[in-house]
Structures are given as C-alpha cells and as structure tokens.
Amino acid sequence: MKETFDTIVIGGGQSGLACGYYLRRAKLNFLIIDKQQVAGGAWLNAWDSLTLFSPADYSSLPGWLMPKSENKFPLKKEVIDYLSKYEAHYQLNVKRGVETIQITKDNSFFQVHSNQGIFKCKTIISATGTWENPFIPKLKGLENFKGLQIHSRNYKNPDAFVGLKTLVVGEGNSGAQIVAETSKVTTVKWSTKRDPEFLPDEVDGYYLFNVATAKYKAEKEGKPFDASQYNLGNIVMVPPVKEARKRGVLVSSGSFHKLTKNGVVWDSGMEEEFDAIIWCTGFGYATDYLKSLVKTDERGIAKTQESRSLEVDGLWLVGYGGWTGYASATLVGLNRTAKQTIKEIEEYFKVYS
C-alpha cells in the first residue's frame, strides 16, 4: 500500500475502536488493522456465557451508549453486536484479516509488515490487548499430563468436560466463573494459590472503576488511599458465581506443585487424578510484533509513560490495563486513555510536522 497514514492502529477491538473515534474527531488520516475477519475483538473468542461486569449504562465506548440489555450484565453476543455497530456507526477505517508480523522504523516513518504487505505511517497505536498471549505456569511435569489440558482462552462451554473429573486452576474471575459452569456437568476441584476473595454482592465493574479512578487520582496527588475493601483483583459476584456459591462449589482445594501423567501432586504431598485441567492463569501482553522497535520483558511489557512509549517517538500503547492507563482494559475505563493518547498524537504532529 503506497498511502502513508498519520496513524495506524494495530488491533480492531474495543481499544482500537475508541482510538478510532478520537482520531476521526481529530481529522487525522488513520487506518485500523485487525487480524479478525469481523468486528468484536477478543470477545469473538471468549467463552459462550461470558458477560460484562457492569450494566450497559456504564459500559460504553466514547460517543455512543451501549443499548440496554434485558440482563443486568450484557451478554457476549450483545457486546459483539455493539462493537460491530459502533464501528459501522462512526465509519471507522478498519481493514480486516491483517496480521501484523513486525514493525520497523525508517527515519520518521513506521513500516507495518503484515500478511497483506507493508503499511506506512507516521505514528503507531498498539492496541492488541492480551488474548493472544495466554500464560500457563511452567510447573514440573506439565508436559507429562496425558489428559485434556487447555487455557481459559480456548474454553468455550462445559460440553467437552461432561463426565470428566476436572481441575480448574486460578483464583480470578475466569476461574470462579468456569468452576461455576463446569461444576454443573461434572466433578470439579478448584486450585488456587491463595484463598479466593469475593467482592460484596452489590459491587460491579462500574463501582470498581470508580474505586480505581479515585486511587489513581490519589496517587497522582501523593495522597493515601485505602482500596483494600474493594481489591480490584477480587471476584465479581455475577449471577452464575452467586448461584455456584449457593451450591457450595466455590471452595479452593489449595495449590499443587507438580503434574503427573494422570493428575497432580498437591502441596500436601497427596496425589490426585484428573481427566482434564483448565488453566485460568491469566495472560501476558500481545506485543511480540513490537520487538524490532522496543525492549519487552517476559510478560510483553515495554517502558511507557501512561500510553506513550519512552523508547520510540511516535509509538503509543493503549488498552493494556494498569500498565498503560488506569482501568484501560475495560470498556468503561478506556475512554480517558484513548482521549489522552490522541491528544498527545496531535501535539506530536505539531512538533514533528
């Protein structure tokens, strides 16, 4: 492609679309490239029953409210539909089926090398999130286990686990929700490094965003802030988790240190057999394609000030959570980071144009 864009956004999920909204308002010549064939970002690959943690009123991208849902928390299909219509509503310039391989910089221009050729631009926004970089701890015997073994990234529904004694690993929201769902069809145990901590029933994602915002503001002003009562990593009591609590299945069996051919060895020394393991152990950051530009650690993190790269002029990273902007991995928290990023890009062009 011979055209040189002001900005190319890598990733067409919620972060890329929010940036597109502000790039459009700034009248910058931009292109969003995305490896998916349709709109929806990571939501396209999430498990079937996943919902938002906040009501629709508090889960919108900039400029256009998410339609109300019949459910307290919008369903996966409703979120995908909203993202698709949002993209069309603002006529955002998205090119699909484009997988970014690497990005290089020659003088003042970036070259985005992809499966569909090279795209050229003056600035880059990396907005690829975490979904493509699932993390599984390197425990002894991991490769020896002969049963079914998947990461939550590849979990869709409990159908494949009917009749299989299953171990779910991880104390976060995904672990709790998958325990809740699979325990309806088979015998399940839950392995966590620490006792699972649950938020009060009335606390949802919007409340957590407000806590995160207050904490962020306090830190900026050098003031103390106690958010211990509402730890942002604690489990949100969405309806399936509440139902599972009533059934008494959300009880941790503790942690294990080794896998065997047929199961695990618990920290107590006891061995137990399992037919399947579901790893709900989180993600790194999907930033491998930036390695020609910046140094990244084992999780994929590069040095930034908020979303602006500290190593390469003209590079921003948006939507990676607390690393690049408070609560920026959520729909409700993304707006501030996207808006500030495009403002910085406008200032960049004033200096370098």
Rank of each mutant, 00 (worst) to 15 (best):
W47I: 03
V188C: 05
V203L: 10
A302Q: 09
Y21F: 14
D275S: 13
L44A: 02
T100N: 01
F225H: 12
Y326C: 15
N157K: 12
L92G: 06
G233C: 04
I278S: 04
K343W: 06
Y22N: 08
S15L: 05
C19A: 15
S69N: 10
R308H: 12
E143Q: 12
W323C: 01
S228G: 15
I101D: 10
I33C: 08
K77Y: 07
G141K: 09
F161C: 03
V251A: 07
I118L: 03
R25Y: 10
V351E: 13
K35E: 15
T4F: 04
G40A: 00
K303D: 15
Q340P: 01
K2Y: 11
I124H: 07
S255C: 09
L142H: 02
M1D: 10
F135S: 09
G172R: 04
S268G: 09
K220M: 08
E99R: 10
Y58P: 02
E171K: 12
K146I: 00
I118Q: 04
F225Q: 09
D201L: 11
G175N: 01
T186N: 07
K95A: 07
S174K: 05
H257G: 14
G117I: 04
L65G: 07
K105W: 13
K2N: 15
D297K: 03
G97H: 04
Y285D: 00
A329H: 13
A286M: 04
P74V: 08
V249I: 13
K156A: 02
G205Y: 08
Y285F: 15
R153V: 03
F135I: 04
C280T: 06
A212W: 06
V162M: 08
D159M: 12
R194G: 11
R247V: 11
S183I: 00
N154K: 14
A329I: 07
H89A: 03
T4P: 07
G254C: 11
G163H: 12
W323G: 02
R25N: 14
A286Q: 11
V294R: 04
K165V: 00
G16T: 02
A329C: 14
P137M: 03
R24V: 00
R308C: 10
V162R: 15
P200G: 06
T281D: 08
V168L: 02
T213G: 04
T100D: 09
Y22L: 08
F119T: 00
G205N: 06
L61M: 03
Y348V: 04
K343F: 10
S228R: 14
A227M: 06
S353W: 10
L250Y: 07
H89F: 13
L317S: 07
T123M: 09
W323D: 00
V264T: 08
N107I: 10
W323Y: 12
K122L: 07
K303E: 15
V318C: 10
